[in-house]
Design a protein around this nucleic acid. Structure first.
Length: 353
DNA sequence: ACTAGCTGCTCC
DNA sequence: TTTCAGA
DNA sequence: TCTGAAAGAGCAGCTAGT
């Protein structure tokens, strides 16, 4: 592989105007490149499998960053940023152009784009407005700056490092000596601490979890490899079922999602919906339990957003269940919720937020 | 002409 | 992203 | 074991209705 050209777009969106008299055709075109010729250097990100903390020697532990995965291609004063889906985000995050000033050698880096909250923790919710803004205004850049956390080095001086073990790639990354810069960071990896210790540090600092990486592993582009194991910090929450929505497709005829609440002194606060984690028996059991609880109006003290409430069936809020989730969103919704099951031993008054 | 409500897109 | 179910 | 389909959240832009 050479770094003769930076990889380009996988897709492009075009708007075409045909004819002079208002004959407008708007269409979306997909340009599929011939990979071998146009994009010789596209390196798809290696992915981690979900699992438990590995024990014993041979592993490094990194923090799991709550942001957007991005590979960057740097050569001279040129930079290309590609997301996990090979979409071009070079303009979306102009902060990353600092890389061209910090690197004197052509390189391909792997890392995570993050937006820090006031406590200095990467926070995906803060990043949302940046993700969707291809040409951010100065105001947005000031309000929500991003940083690039570089955790791997895939290509340097036109030479691939994919076959090198993790330890070598990480040393080579350190040897780049990226100077301290507010927009570019090289986060730590821990090779002499037990995974549990790193995990508890992550928990203490409100981080998302840890990723364990085998010290001797090569970089497997585009593969979900057991050489990388992600261990998110999972939280559980007891919730009250306040409604449900019918499923579609394979789930038509049964429940698609449950609408959840958390009791507060002033009433049941809406906490979002959960649509995964059910087995088929769970769904049919829930259906028969929810049916007799039907009521015409939402049981929540606050307004349920219309797109959540669409097609919803409301129930008396008496059934308690448990969900696993990652974090709360700023407006009090569960992020990445997954249904664990009913808690018939509990009543809504037992729940603490 | 305005706006609520869709749909589609992007990410986790 | 996570999870389940079917091939 | 792999693949497809269900689900979450937020934003931009189009559309249909007033």
């Amino acid at each position: 592989m050479s770094l003769a050209e930076l990889p380009g777009l996988r897709r492009a969106w075009l708007r075409v105007t045909l004819g002079g008299q208002g004959a407008v055709y708007k269409g979306r075109f997909t340009l599929t490149p011939q990979r071998s010729h146009e994009f010789p250097d596209l390196i798809r990100p290696m992915l981690a499998v979900l699992g438990d903390l590995p024990q014993g020697p041979g592993w490094a532990f990194e923090f799991k960053w709550d942001g957007v995965r991005a590979t960057t291609y740097v050569r001279d004063d040129r930079l290309r940023v590609l997301t996990r889906n090979d979409l071009d985000a070079s303009r979306t995050y102009p902060e990353l152009h600092a890389l061209t000033g910090l690197l004197t050698r052509p390189a391909v880096l792997d890392g995570e784009i993050v937006a820090l909250d006031p406590e200095g923790r990467p926070n995906f919710s803060r990043l949302q407005s940046r993700i969707h803004t291809r040409r951010p205004t100065d105001d947005l850049l000031r309000r929500i700056p991003v940083s690039y956390y570089v955790f791997d080095l895939l290509h340097l001086d036109g030479r691939s490092l994919l076959g090198e073990p993790y330890t070598h790639r990480r040393e080579a990354l350190a040897d780049l000596d990226l100077p301290a810069h507010p927009s570019i960071r090289v986060p730590p990896c821990f090779t002499d601490l037990p995974g549990e210790t790193v995990q508890s540090i992550a928990a203490d600092h409100g981080l998302e979890g840890v990723v364990a990486k085998r010290l001797d592993s090569r970089y497997d582009p585009g593969r979900r490899s057991p050489s990388w194991i992600k261990v998110p910090l999972i939280r559980t929450q007891e919730v009250v079922i306040g409604g449900w929505r019918p499923g579609e497709g394979r789930r038509s005829g049964t429940i698609g999602a449950l609408l959840l609440g958390v009791p507060t002194p002033s009433g049941l606060r809406y906490a979002g919906k959960v649509g995964t984690g059910f087995t088929a028996p769970m769904l049919s059991d829930l259906q028969s339990r929810l049916h007799p609880l039907h009521r015409p109006t939402p049981p929540f003290k606050d307004e349920v957003p219309t797109d959540h409430a669409r097609n919803a069936h409301w129930v008396n809020p008496v059934l308690v269940g448990e969900v696993q989730f990652r974090t709360w969103t700023p407006d009090g919704r569960l992020r990445h919720p997954s249904w664990r099951g009913l808690r018939p031993d509990k009543s809504p008054s037992d729940i603490t937020a």
